[in-house]
Computed example of a mutant assay.
Amino acid sequence: MLRIEKVPIANIYVPTARRKTLHPETVRLLAEDILQNGMKTPIQVRKDTNRYVLVEGLHRLEAAKWLGETTIDSYLVQARRH
């Protein structure tokens, strides 16, 4: 079973290919929802040498940044490199 960990947002690397799929309006709407209801689903990251690499949850990550959060709930997963 996956365990939720608080991960520093500053230590999360977003691969370039993933950044291209970002929709600012979705981030804004998601940030508003998080303010009202909290983060419902943690993002997924994999551990790299001295950082985390985003696997899933770009819009949730960006919404947390937009809200000024410094950490985010994350599942640490085993994933192959992109």
Results as ranks from 00 to 15, higher is better:
residue 47 K to A: 14
residue 62 E to I: 03
residue 41 T to G: 00
residue 30 L to K: 10
residue 34 I to N: 03
residue 43 I to V: 13
residue 63 A to P: 05
residue 66 W to G: 00
residue 46 R to S: 11
residue 64 A to V: 06
residue 34 I to W: 01
residue 38 G to F: 04
residue 10 A to L: 08
residue 3 R to I: 11
residue 34 I to V: 11
residue 61 L to Y: 12
residue 6 K to D: 15
residue 51 R to L: 10
residue 50 N to D: 15
residue 1 M to F: 09
residue 37 N to M: 04
residue 48 D to S: 12
residue 55 V to H: 07
residue 52 Y to M: 03
residue 73 D to R: 03
residue 45 V to D: 00
residue 67 L to S: 06
residue 31 A to V: 08
residue 81 R to V: 12
residue 56 E to W: 03
residue 7 V to T: 08
residue 51 R to I: 08
residue 5 E to R: 03
residue 74 S to Y: 00
residue 69 E to G: 04
residue 4 I to W: 02
residue 69 E to T: 02
residue 28 R to A: 15
residue 21 T to C: 04
residue 33 D to N: 13
residue 10 A to F: 06
residue 61 L to V: 04
residue 38 G to S: 03
residue 29 L to T: 10
residue 38 G to P: 00
residue 72 I to E: 07
residue 12 I to E: 06
residue 18 R to N: 11
residue 41 T to W: 05
residue 3 R to G: 09
residue 11 N to W: 07
residue 22 L to H: 04
residue 19 R to Q: 15
residue 79 A to M: 05
residue 15 P to C: 06
residue 16 T to S: 11
residue 14 V to E: 09
residue 60 R to Q: 09
residue 61 L to W: 03
residue 59 H to T: 12
residue 21 T to Y: 06
residue 64 A to T: 11
residue 19 R to Y: 05
residue 64 A to H: 06
residue 14 V to H: 06
residue 20 K to C: 02
residue 68 G to H: 07
residue 22 L to C: 12
residue 82 H to T: 10
residue 12 I to N: 06
residue 31 A to R: 04
residue 72 I to Y: 09
residue 56 E to I: 06
residue 56 E to Q: 08
residue 47 K to P: 00
residue 4 I to N: 02
residue 24 P to K: 07
residue 75 Y to M: 05
residue 5 E to P: 00
residue 1 M to H: 10
residue 52 Y to G: 02
residue 51 R to F: 14
residue 25 E to T: 11
residue 16 T to Q: 11
residue 17 A to M: 08
residue 9 I to R: 00
residue 28 R to V: 14
residue 82 H to V: 08
residue 54 L to H: 01
residue 3 R to D: 15
residue 36 Q to E: 15
residue 71 T to R: 02
residue 4 I to V: 15
residue 40 K to D: 14
residue 4 I to L: 02
residue 18 R to K: 11
residue 77 V to T: 13
residue 15 P to E: 06
